[in-house]
Amino acid sequence: MTWLSKSPWILHYDASSCNGCDIEVLACLSPLYDVERFGIINTGNPKHADVLVITGGINEQNREVVRNLYAQMPDPKVVVAVGICASSGGVFRECYNVVGGIDCVIPVDVYVPGCAARPESIIDGIVKALSILEEKKKNGTQSSPAPGSGAGGAQ
């Protein structure tokens, strides 16, 4: 592992989650799971973040917000969809206001299963994302523009 995966910073956004996965993402920061020992820090600023962790499915109102957050993150970047709602819409798939999983709006690199996803599997998913991040760095991959936004990823 090189410098990038030694201290990845995470941006967490709650799309239309029930909170179950959100509090499990936050639980990863608590002393029992303590992801900070890996140098992982939860930041509130998209311009500081390497990994975008999204919980919950996309709905009509947060579509643009998610697209915006993704576009603001510097390259290389990876997206982790946490929980079944973020992966496919989950139990709310049929609701009129839910569009579907995160991959309807932005490209997703890692899907973490579970309702709610357990902290262990969330950590697992983020570790998996780190090797993808490393790969992207090596290949100099630029993110594909967020679909429909017309804007490329931040350079």
Partner: peptide, 23 residues
């Protein structure tokens, strides 16, 4: 508000009453 609105109350028409507990 509305960033997390899913409209899950309408799902009663799709789920039988014992299943709606999960929703």
């Amino acid at each position: 508000i509305g960033y997390i609105h899913r409209g899950l109350e309408t799902l009663v028409a799709k789920r039988e009453y014992p299943e709606y507990v999960y929703i």
